[in-house]
């Protein structure tokens, strides 16, 4: 999950070197805490949250293959 989110976010932002992703593995849930450069936050969220929602959908499809759920959070 971490690699998947990392690939998408890195291709999306202008400052890929500033990305930090922390993965917390639970029994049924994977929590991904994402940090990006402040200038890039909008590029990850998108208008009306459209981009982050699409990323979450794709992540959850991937996670459902291994019967898990993913929570992707953007940290300020």
């Amino acid at each position: 999950m971490k690699e998947l989110v990392e690939y998408i976010i890195k291709s999306l932002v202008d400052q890929p070197e500033k990305i930090e992703i922390k993965e917390i593995l639970g029994e049924k849930t994977v929590i991904l805490e994402l940090k990006v450069a402040p200038e890039d936050v909008g590029k990850v969220i998108g208008k009306q949250g459209r981009i982050i929602k699409a990323i979450r959908t794709v992540l959850n499809a991937a996670a459902s293959k291994v019967s898990k759920r993913v929570v992707l959070e953007i940290q300020d």
């Binding site: 291709s11 999306l12 459209r50 981009i51 699409a54 990323i55 959908t57 794709v58």
Partner: peptide, 24 residues
Amino acid sequence: ILIGKRGKTLNSLQFIVNLLVNKV
């Protein structure tokens, strides 16, 4: 799994691919 409920996953993936391709 790829299609998702009413095409939600396929549409999300399509949206992301369009974004990433248009970026390069």
